[in-house]
Amino acid sequence: MSRDSALRIAAGMLIAVAAMSLLAPVIAPASPIAVDMSLRNAPPSSAHWLGTDTLGRDVASRVIYGGRGALAISFGATLISMVIGIALGSLAGWFGKFTDTAIQVFMSIFQGLPGLTISIAIVGVMGASNLSISVAMVATGWSGISRVVRSQIRNLRNEQFVEAAKVYLPAPGYLIVRHLLPLTMPTLVVLATQRMGRMILMIASLSFIGVGLQPPTPDWGVMIQDGRQYFAQQPWALLGPAVMLFIASFSVARLGELLRDRWDTFSDDAMAVR
């Protein structure tokens, strides 16, 4: 399969998942939280494509709605993590010396913390909400980005085209924003997408262990937790959200890798033009 075809497939999968979540009120066949005890554990049918769960709720509708929270939180948290990570990583990489040491110590403290445990602690202290989950995702997400950006800026800052530009006495911000960060873009895209993929899984994990998004909010993690108890009798209740969770996290991470290959100036294709 060519790289362009793979890119189109990954982008298509992600767009499909995002569109499904955005258009959930339009395309969902039923309310995701409407309980109908007369329809408990119904198998898949034309009225309920993925059957119903133990409370008689339509599983397909819950699957369609289930990505909204995770995708919105992971997208927002990734964006904020990237801004913090790029800003601190750039400062550390460019200025070096005391600035670098101070920021690196700060980074190490955050990077040394176990992600899931700290997320549980933050959500536990702040209470389960979109805000607390976002804070947890940012707190555990920015330091890795910062470290990579620092390393890239340190490698690039002594390149000859940067020294040539320094002859024109620009401000450091100009050199970082105009010259250096665009060159780190392929890496940043991969980092952002992988981070977002991991956050989707982390949010589902928090919901799965009961500290993330709370029932009756339709969420893939919550649904997997509910569905695992009755997997033998009604596998559709677990497989639906599990497949969607896989598609969402895989497509976003794969898309990043493929975009990196496409944009990388130093890729074989680019050099072959010479």
């Binding site: 000859q160 040539a164 530009a165 002859v167 010259h179 060159l183 100036t265």
Partner: peptide, 13 residues
């Protein structure tokens, strides 16, 4: 100044 390595004297992007 014209630096020594012309291939690296211009931003590659």
């Amino acid at each position: 100044v014209v630096f020594q390595d012309p291939r690296n004297a211009f931003n590659p992007r």
